[in-house]
Simulated scan of single mutants.
Amino acid sequence: MLAASYLLALLAILLAWPVPVALSHARWTSRSPFAAMVLWQSIALAGGLSMIGAMLVYGLQPLGDNLLQAIGRAASLVLENKSSDELQFWHLFALCAAALLGTHLVFTLGLTYARITNQRRRHRELLEVLSLPSGAIERTLVINHPAPVAYCLPGGSRSVTVLSDGLVEALSPGELAAVVEHERAHLTQRHHLLLWAFEAWRQALPWLPTSRLSREAVSSLVEMLADDVARRTAPDDVLVRAIALVAVGSAGAATDPAEASLESSRVTGTPGTPGDGEASVAARLSRLLTPQPQLTAAQTTAVLAASGLMLAVPTVLLLAPGLLS
């Protein structure tokens, strides 16, 4: 078990710094946003599992030859209110750290969900005052805003797409259809759940490179995934014009108090809106203006296999000794 704890610690270090840094500079991710998204999720999950697992295994290793046996003995000691001379200071410290980190991650996930839910509720209340239903587009609201703005507001059966009248006036019918298709892709593919999970990860461990880089990468990748859906019904040049116009218009958006309240309560970033960074917009435009070939089936399979292996390694290190005993 001691060797497993060291290997888990090494894996945690790799997934906390060099691996996410290398992936953040990789150029292939825009060629297969889905595969890249899966890989980022694996890095985050495997990194968290490795961090907690390393401390847990180290702390419990004096109590048994494998993790399952050690957990069973630790539970009996707690239930019978007994002490163990085998557990030294550093073992207890590791167990406390594992418990605190695990609790912190779960608590932050719940806190982030509550915060986002409240933001969406307030946002929806503002929309009831500041928007009108679009007569031409189903489940779409239009706000009185001179700048081209488009985003989606998740809410299950109450999910809506929000457009500004400045956007409706500035875009051609084809460009407007591409933007609406993009926003609906965010809703149908549940991108807000991915953003929630990675935002919670960043809030929980803001000092960790993985949390910051993964949040930035996922924000850009969900936009590319939605772009790919819009590309099925609109030519690339139409989508490029729409993205560029929304990006330029949002940069000079008005600062009316009511509109500012809407902007501050918005949860999901969408094409060219203030939540969408300049680097993300540039990357999206670049892949549309100079299309690159998608990853081959073999390359995609390799990325997905690496993602699965990344999750399997810490799981095996934690469970295999118990299964083999």
Rank of each mutant, 00 (worst) to 15 (best):
P154W: 05
T140V: 12
L109V: 00
W40L: 06
R121H: 14
V78C: 03
Q41E: 06
G156P: 13
L60A: 06
N118G: 02
L130K: 14
V149M: 15
R31S: 05
F107G: 11
A97K: 07
A75V: 05
A70K: 09
V78Q: 11
Q88L: 03
G72H: 03
A150M: 14
Y113H: 09
I71G: 02
C152S: 15
G102L: 04
R124W: 10
L60I: 05
G59Y: 01
A46K: 09
D85C: 03
M55D: 01
L95P: 00
L45D: 05
A97V: 01
C96P: 09
A147Q: 05
W90K: 00
H123E: 14
A74E: 01
T103K: 11
M55F: 06
L95F: 00
I116Y: 08
L132V: 14
F107M: 11
L105E: 06
R73F: 07
A54N: 06
I43F: 07
L77Q: 04
L92M: 01
V129L: 15
V78H: 08
N118V: 08
H91N: 03
S42A: 10
I71M: 07
T117I: 07
P33S: 11
I143G: 01
H123F: 07
L100T: 09
V149T: 14
E128I: 03
S76H: 13
G155M: 13
V57D: 04
P33A: 07
W40G: 05
R31K: 09
M37W: 07
F107R: 11
L77S: 04
I71W: 03
L49A: 14
F89C: 00
L45N: 07
F34Y: 12
E128W: 07
P133H: 08
E80Y: 00
G47K: 08
N118M: 10
A150E: 12
L63Q: 07
Y113T: 00
W40C: 04
L101V: 08
E138F: 08
M37Y: 10
V149K: 10
S134Y: 09
L132F: 10
N118R: 14
G156Q: 06
H91R: 00
L130P: 08
L68K: 00
T108S: 15
E80K: 05
T112Q: 14
G47Q: 10
A75L: 09
L109R: 06
L60C: 03
S30C: 02
Q41R: 04
L87Q: 01
R115V: 05
P62S: 04
E138G: 13
T140E: 15
L100P: 04
M51A: 11
T108N: 11
Y151D: 03
L56G: 08
P33W: 00
A97D: 12
T140Y: 12
L39F: 15
I52D: 09
N81Q: 09
L63A: 01
H123D: 14
A46P: 06
V78I: 10
L79R: 13
Q61M: 13
T117S: 12
L68T: 13
Q41S: 13
S42E: 00
Q88Y: 05
